[in-house]
Amino acid sequence: MRILGIETSCDETGIAIYDDEKGLLANQLYSQVKLHADYGGVVPELASRDHIRKTIPLIQAALQEANLTSKDIDGVAYTAGPGLIGALLVGASIGRSLAYAWNVPAVAVHHMEGHLLAPMLEDNPPEFPFVALLVSGGHTQLISVTGIGEYKLLGESIDDAAGEAFDKTAKLLGLDYPGGARLSKLAEQGHSERFTFPRPMTDRPGLDFSFSGLKTFSANTIRQNQNEQGQQDEQTRSDIARAFEDALVDTLIIKSRRALEQTGFNRLVIAGGVSANKTLRTKLAKMMEQRHGQVFYPRIEFCTDNGAMIAYAGMIHFKRNETVDLAINVKPRWPLSES
């Protein structure tokens, strides 16, 4: 059984083909980073138009990579939300239309469920139950996962997502878009003892996050440590980047530990774009080792948006007969608990 997966929720066009016996047969990805770089962020209209240009050619490339034709596809899965409405409509319209033309079922997949299940594509997938830390440019959530479709929200960001805070702070430091990865690279040269940033909302009970204040603290620190030309020397920029990253990562770890203690689970899954962060991976691995637990990640190329996670999630729902009718519906806002 083979499922074609289509991901177009934001600024990556991802196409993949997943076989329930052979695994991932094809994985094609196109990033719009260069397109949006001049604007310092994603422009929704441009993103939608680029998905229109790239989706069909990438589907053709995936079929060629897998040495398959449309007759070999048993179902089409597409991201139905959350995300940018125009971008979602491109993938959903193409996916649902192809399923109709090929006379196969269509599956609407929740974008964050795709991230949550991405570690299942690895050789050592996690077993249920586990706590999932989903960290990306648009979401920061802690989820109790007891099975497929059995998701309980434990906590989430009440303002900026972790990835959004990374990118905004990087912009304050003068780094090009997308700045999160560049900030982490800069932080590798920083001294951790020079600046101490707050760990927001860790001095109170609960599992919610807040990163807007951390971004403001960064802006104030940058302003207080600039010369007459309004600039910082390279070491100061590195030290600020290090202090910011340490604070954000420590906050994620503290909240993840609380979630594990609250649920009694001893397995942690981390997924989403920020899950590629080296410091976060290192510190979480150390924490789980101390707890005699396990931490699971997707491979680096599956941390950001991709078609493989949508194809895999689509396969799961296809087998559960959770398909959609001919109507093309997308949900820019879609709680994971309602997926």
Rank of each mutant, 00 (worst) to 15 (best):
E21C: 01
L116I: 10
Q224G: 07
V324G: 06
E122G: 12
Q232K: 02
P198D: 08
I73D: 03
I254R: 07
P298F: 01
E156P: 06
G83S: 09
P119V: 00
R299D: 05
M309V: 05
G95A: 09
Q232T: 10
L46P: 04
S93I: 05
A311F: 04
T251F: 13
I85V: 15
L154C: 14
R223K: 15
L268Y: 11
A99V: 00
Y177S: 03
D50Y: 12
F318P: 00
T146E: 15
T221Y: 09
G5M: 02
V131D: 12
E301Q: 13
G264W: 05
F197G: 10
T169D: 12
I56N: 09
G230P: 11
A80E: 04
I158N: 09
G163Y: 11
L142K: 11
E188Q: 15
S144H: 15
Q231L: 14
E245T: 05
S93N: 15
N277T: 00
A161N: 07
L58D: 03
G137R: 13
R281D: 00
A187Y: 09
V295W: 11
D123V: 12
I52D: 00
E228V: 05
K319M: 04
A259G: 07
M315N: 09
Y151Q: 10
V274Y: 13
N266E: 07
L183T: 06
D160C: 10
M288L: 05
N266F: 04
L121A: 01
A162R: 06
I328K: 13
T221K: 14
G307Q: 03
H317G: 03
A26D: 06
Q262E: 15
Y30V: 01
N103P: 01
K215A: 08
G174Q: 00
R258Y: 10
D159M: 02
E188Y: 08
P57A: 10
E164T: 02
L29G: 03
L183I: 07
K168C: 09
A271C: 14
R257V: 06
G190W: 05
K185Q: 14
A87N: 08
N277S: 08
L207W: 06
Y312M: 00
G147W: 07
G190Y: 11
M309D: 03
Q32K: 07
S192H: 13
V90F: 13
V131P: 13
S9K: 03
K34I: 03
A99F: 07
D305I: 05
V43R: 07
F130G: 09
R299H: 12
E164F: 12
A26C: 05
Q64P: 08
H115S: 04
E261K: 13
L4A: 06
T169M: 13
K319W: 01
R96S: 08
